[in-house]
Write a protein that binds this DNA or RNA. Structure first.
Length: 447
RNA sequence: GCGAUAGUAGCUCAGUUGGUUAGAGCACCGGCUUGUGGUGCCGGGGGUCGCGGGUUCGAAUCCCGUCUAUCGCCCCA
């Protein structure tokens, strides 16, 4: 039955109106935070993605060989393209770079709730600033985006974590360097896996120490206050100026900024968030519905070495950013009754009695359209009753009636389709009259 | 890629232990209606019952396969 490819969507006008409405909100909020919109190609060299993520990623890409023999792929994410844009002009771009992007992405994966093969993603990145103030700005933007879509902190929370804190934890426990990335992976999964499986995985990596390690991990994950984090980090410290002490200071700066920016209510400290990706280097976060079940609304974090890696070392800039997907966002809004029905009706619906009246109505439609009104009229000859019915169903704000009487008197009858009230106006001053009526908030019913 | 459940009109669904020409509401189109709609009345179009095969005198109904969707696993940039 399905006419589109699996994981792809058709957007009928009502659907697209809703999508555009949401996108307009996202764009507007991003601009308020002084982020600039950019774009990049949808189709990129396959290598761009293999370099970042390895060969295995190819099975999850839409990729093919083009007629020129080039291996190409539809973009599954934006970061590699962004890194190229930034690296190419790293010298001349004013720092910090605050850019955002809203576009379609493609991943060849099993479609599920909240995850399709084609989806739109809002990306925001802040490049060239390594301090936690940049992370705070991004998180504040994320919270604002969700709030302006109608959500609030009782519906969603941004779970905040830090990979450096985890590294210091591993360091403190004297875990060999080569096992750290695997352990972070196990820790990342531990929140959505049953404890037995986690214990088993830990025991494999650290024979004999699995249980003790798991207890220590759970203890760290249970911390949900700045004081708790600070205390724990100082327990890793050897001196007042080592990395653990500096990280405690970073946490303090970040949390204080988030407080000042007014979004602390939407933040939960939760070290259970690690994010699977190896390239994250600092604070990481994911936005979730508090109701629990659904997948992350958004996710992001700091990736200080990625631009260097993707640019082949030609430029090295600290960076941080997040992505917000349209599928989970729309699901969340719908579940909370916040998906608006967008009215796509015209401003004016013209109703004409006969041939002569129609000529005048069409002439007016031309004037009105040039003046900026969305104008429509029935394409076929129809009776008044029928035309009024159509006018009502069209969603138009006003009907303009061109009948025999109006034509003879050089007038047009304006009908407010919401209130049902009518007013005859001089044909020559129609636009002025319409403006006055709109100014007054419509035509009132005579009492 | 692996398991589980489902699939009947554009949408939501009904369809008796297998039995004539598969129905309803909403939506859509037309008429009543060349001067008043969204909210009246009458009528109409629209289905290879997801697709393919099998069992049977006969299949929307039972069996197998397949596709798609949903849920769980893997993954989640």
């Amino acid at each position: 039955m399905s006419e589109h490819l699996p994981g792809f969507r058709d957007f009928y006008p009502d659907d697209l109106a809703r999508r555009n409405h949401l996108f307009a909100i996202l764009r507007e909020v991003a601009v308020r935070f002084d982020f600039r919109e950019f774009d990049a190609p949808v189709l990129e060299p396959l290598d761009l993605y293999l370099e970042k993520s390895g060969e295995e990623i190819a099975t999850q890409l839409f990729h093919f060989t083009d007629q020129g023999g080039r291996e190409v792929a539809l973009r599954p994410e934006l970061t590699p393209s962004l890194a190229r844009l930034v690296a190419d002009k790293a010298e001349s771009l004013k720092k910090p770079i605050k850019w955002f992007h809203l576009g379609e992405h493609f991943r060849y994966e099993r479609p599920q709730k909240g995850r399709l093969r084609s989806f739109f993603q809002f990306n925001a990145d802040l490049i060239g600033e390594a301090s936690p103030s940049a992370d705070a700005e991004l998180i504040a933007l994320l919270v604002s985006l969700l709030e302006e879509c109608g959500l609030h902190s009782e519906i969603f929370q941004v779970r905040l974590s830090d990979r450096i804190t985890w590294s210091l934890f591993l360091e403190d426990r004297k875990v060999p360097q080569e096992k750290r990335s695997d352990l972070l992976d196990v820790i990342d999964k531990s929140s959505r896996r049953d404890p037995e499986a986690t214990l088993e995985a830990l025991e494999t990596l650290l024979p004999g120490e699995g249980k003790a390690f798991l207890d220590a991990v759970d203890e760290l994950k249970s911390i949900d206050t700045l004081e708790g984090i600070t205390e724990r980090l100082h327990s890793f410290s050897q001196s007042e100026e080592d990395e653990a002490a500096r990280r405690a200071e970073d946490w303090k700066v970040l949390i204080n900024r988030l407080e000042s920016l007014g979004c602390i209510d939407a933040i939960t400290i939760d070290l259970g968030i690690v994010r699977g990706l190896a390239y994250y280097t600092g604070f990481v976060y994911e936005a979730f519905e508090t109701s629990g079940e659904s997948r992350a609304l958004a996710g992001g974090g700091r990736y200080d070495h990625l631009i260097s890696k993707l640019s082949g070392g030609s430029s090295d800039l600290p960076a941080s950013g997040f992505a917000l997907g349209d599928v989970t966002l729309a699901d969340c809004l719908e579940a909370n009754g916040l998906l608006p029905e967008i009215d796509v009706g015209p401003d004016l619906y013209l109703i004409a009695g006969g041939q002569d009246e129609r000529v005048v109505a069409l002439q007016d439609s031309s004037r009105l359209r040039k003046a900026g009104y969305a104008v429509t009229y029935p394409l076929r000859e129809q009776g008044f009753g029928k035309q009024f019915r159509e006018a009502g169903k069209s969603g138009a704000v006003f009907a303009l009636v061109y009948g025999e009487e109006e034509l003879a008197a050089g007038k047009v009858k304006v009908k407010d389709l919401t209130s049902g009230a009518e007013k005859s106006v001089e044909s020559g001053s129609l636009i002025e009259e319409l403006l006055a009526i709109e100014e007054a908030g419509g035509l009132a019913v005579e009492s």
